[in-house]
């Protein structure tokens, strides 16, 4: 067995050392680390949320990361998209991100895909994915991913940000509401949104913790509730979410 063999169930000496400080966590242990190593996580969008999400999933030792973004790096991204640096302006985001992530952790598999997620390709993209990190910057694509995740029974960790505001919830098909239970699909606002990088980092970091808990089975998930944070006055609000029995997407999964 080699270090790079994600399907091997053991952890090498290197891995035991590298992830030792998280393996020490009561209840997580080597078993938790092995589960992270065996996991395939898709990160939809490597922007403000996706950058820190990808960094922390990579450092945590998720065995396989697929990162998807069709965009190229723009100077106006640099206030928040911390995987992209000044020299990367003009580069494809997945190339810029993939290069850094490989340097952060060369022992995991990283699959960068420069493409736009559509209704046509989403089912294929989800393939053998265990979990989707919703780091998109628009609701239309979120709804597409949500619907495909519900169809395939893949959990999705939703994050959204704006200004100093953030929201996060973990969506598990068949158990929790889906995104379309929460919001109508015909949302109209399509404007450039104001955002501070640290707002995105905060939500991203919570998304990664949800991912680690979901994949390892440790702790309690943020399901059936949405954490809504207003950092302009440090207001944290836990909002109860209801599944809609008549939901077009998940209504049949009650």
């Amino acid at each position: 067995m080699t270090d790079n063999d994600r399907t091997c169930v053991g952890l090498s000496e290197d891995e035991l050392l590298r992830y030792g400080r998280q393996i020490m966590t009561p209840g997580f242990g080597e078993e938790g680390q092995k589960r992270l190593k065996q996991a395939h996580v898709l990160i939809a969008g490597v922007g403000g949320l996706g950058s820190p999400v990808a960094i922390y999933l990579a450092t945590a030792g998720i065995g396989r990361l697929t990162i998807i973004d069709f965009d190229s790096v723009d100077l106006s991204n640099l206030n928040r998209q911390i995987l992209h640096w000044e020299d990367d302006v003009g580069r494809r985001k997945v190339d810029s991100a993939g290069q850094k992530l490989t340097k952060i952790n060369s022992r995991i598999d990283i699959h960068p895909l420069s493409l736009k997620i559509t209704g046509e390709n989403i089912q294929d993209l989800l393939g053998d994915v265990d979990l989707v990190m919703d780091c998109m910057d628009n609701m239309d694509t979120r709804f597409l991913i949500n619907e495909a995740c519900v169809k395939k029974g893949i959990p999705m960790i939703h994050g959204g940000v704006r200004e100093m505001l953030g929201e996060i919830t973990t969506l598990v098909p068949g158990k929790t509401p889906c995104l379309e239970c929460l919001l109508p699909r015909d949302l109209s606002k399509k404007e450039t949104f104001p955002i501070f990088g640290a707002t995105a980092a905060m939500i991203a970091s919570l998304q990664v913790l949800e991912a680690i808990k979901l994949l390892s089975g440790v702790g309690a998930l943020l399901t059936d509730r949405m954490l809504f944070i207003d950092n302009s006055n440090l207001e944290f609000m836990m909002i109860d979410l209801q599944k809609k029995p008549e939901c077009r997407v998940c209504g049949g999964l009650l």
């Binding site: 922007g47 959204g160 940000v161 109508p184 949302l187 995105a200």
Partner: peptide, 8 residues
């Protein structure tokens, strides 16, 4: 009246 955060 809904509030949602579309940014990422």
């Amino acid at each position: 009246l809904l509030v949602y955060l579309a940014g990422g």
